[in-house]
Write a protein that binds this DNA or RNA. Structure first.
Lengths: 321, 321
DNA sequence: CTCGAGTCTGAACATCCGTTCACATCGTGA
DNA sequence: TCACGATGTGAACGGATGTTCAGACTCGAG
């Protein structure tokens, strides 16, 4: 519960600190609060947006690497964030901030946008500050995991994105993975599922996380057995996008898992003109470079270490020394 | 000289710190800069406005005191800033921030505004971020001091204010104090002086600093002899507005000094509907309370200690114990 | 070339800030 | 009544930030 009195305190304290330059201790003295309390109030003020910090500059810290990536892989654009603390808890923050910038760059050209399953996509949406002029339609491109509600579900990401930009979200009432291929077939046949996926396939833009196979998507762990993972790797899978696995050539890895997926196929995704892929951290470099090389994504959001790693790979696919 | 490369650095560093949350040390490592350099770059970025920090709240830290002031003296509005470090170098900052808020509140209703001599007014203008819809005319209400150019001259304050709000400034080519009453008379007769002062007298709003007689306006020190100050005090002067001194009843203190002033008279000022007075610090309490009591100003900008002091004075003028 | 004024730099220090932890308080349900 | 979790609080610590100072550099004048 946020009362008016608390809001007022936020404003007062924020003013005294950010406009008048008083220290936390001075503010505490003035308003009879402990210094720690002032610190907390200020943190809250930043978190809730009472205090807004804007950088008026279009400089990217890694402009050189971004343009190198774009040239090398023929991308529409590339967005790079720092690697400090990537993999730790700071990661979603930094990758999300940059992902939000990428979204803001893509959104003006998209009337209909499809979103995939990924914590990185969720983080990007969380950092987005953008209001669309037109009514954007946001569609999940795959079903959702069951169990405890998580903000990394396509359905919830779609909802959050729609809320953030003032558009409308569509619901895909289906699991990401059905328990059997037959069940999947049945679910795909449901009118509401079919219609939503069809609409997603016709989207102007796609926003997905690119996953790896190693510590692969915790998200999938619950639904895919270790044996199935084994089988996927044996078939050459190097990564996935919303449970659609691909090999080193970017070709779909079909089989037991693929048959159970409720969502767009890789082919369908490739037909969407703007394809934003988000991936950060060392374990995602191979899937990322594959997605870039094979054109699965044409807008990339990643961290500087991964970007450099991808750029230093030999140009020709088979040119391994 | 600010080069593009430096601007670019400002933006990059600011992004990394304020958006991605890297520490100064981390940024230094990343961009091969010393930690201290990063600190300096960030300070520069804030100073130049590359980084903008906004508080989205209309809460004033001292709303209670402000409304008490307004009620007690029948003011249009009151604006109070913290007293920490007042008198020291932080003063202009804090008083200026609050003064700027007051200006922003007044400007929408003023098509023509007259400004007086005061470092406090200059500081307020320096902190102003405001763009006027209409073409505001800014007029100096008194002449300028000679000697080294100072940003506390009415003329320069007028120019700065006009620049800040996108209006036009008028020039008053005259000294604040002529050397003799006769010289003053002559100067006042000059067409361009007469016209500008006449226009200033017809302004919608007035912004002045309220000065004291003790450590009185360093600004005046050079032009007014100690003997003249003595005489002013003997005649009951308690303070001044742009070299127009007044006594405890708010009545003009005429005499040798007054005769030499090139600028609006107190009577002329009182005829301007909106009269903003800025004064901070202990030595200005008496002049401030007098200006408030006698209605010389009807919008006040001051610090919390002064505000409290003024409010605890007995209500009746002559009710001294 | 030499000197000096001005500017820039990073080491060292002093302060400020954020986080963690142990404790107090309150409300809730057994 | 007590037990217990949820929430809120400030002391204390460690890292982050800002400032000061002495030395290095640049540039122009003599």
């Amino acid at each position: 519960m946020r009362t008016n009195a608390q809001d007022a305190l936020l404003g007062k304290v924020a003013r005294l600190h950010y406009e008048h330059g008083l220290t936390h201790a001075e503010i505490g003295e003035l308003l009879s609060l402990s210094r720690v309390k002032v610190t907390r109030v200020l943190a809250e003020a930043r978190r809730t947006g009472v205090v807004e910090i804007t950088v008026h500059s279009d400089e990217s810290p890694f402009a050189d690497v971004e343009s190198a990536l774009a040239r090398r892989f023929g991308l529409l654009s590339a967005h790079v964030c720092p690697s400090f603390g990537l993999g730790e808890e700071r990661s979603p923050g930094s990758l999300g901030v940059t992902g939000a910038a990428a979204l803001a760059a893509v959104l003006p050209h998209a009337g209909r946008i499809a979103v995939g399953l990924s914590t990185a996509v969720a983080a990007s949406v969380a950092h987005l500050r953008y209001t669309s002029d037109e009514a954007v339609e946001v569609l999940p491109l795959a079903g959702s995991r069951g169990g405890r509600s998580s903000d990394a579900n396509p359905h919830e990401v779609a909802g959050a994105l729609a809320r953030a930009i003032g558009g409308t979200a569509y619901h895909l009432p289906a699991p990401l993975l059905a328990t059997t291929p037959e069940a999947a077939q049945t679910i795909r046949g449901l009118e509401e599922v079919r219609a939503t996926l069809e609409a997603a396939a016709a989207a102007d833009a796609l926003v997905v996380g690119v996953g790896g196979t190693v510590r692969a998507a915790q998200a999938l762990r619950r639904s895919v057995t270790e044996a199935e993972f084994e089988a996927l790797r044996d078939l050459g899978a190097v990564g996935d996008v919303s449970a659609r696995f691909f090999d080193a050539d970017g070709a779909p890895v079909l089989g037991a898992v693929d048959d159970r997926v409720i969502g767009l196929t890789l082919e369908q995704m490739r037909r969407i003109p703007t394809r934003v892929g988000i991936a950060g951290g060392a374990e995602k470099r191979l899937p990322l470079s594959t997605a870039l090389r094979t054109g699965l994504v044409n807008v990339v959001v990643t961290d500087i270490d991964s970007a450099r790693a991808v750029l230093t790979e030999p140009v020709a696919t088979t040119a391994t020394a």
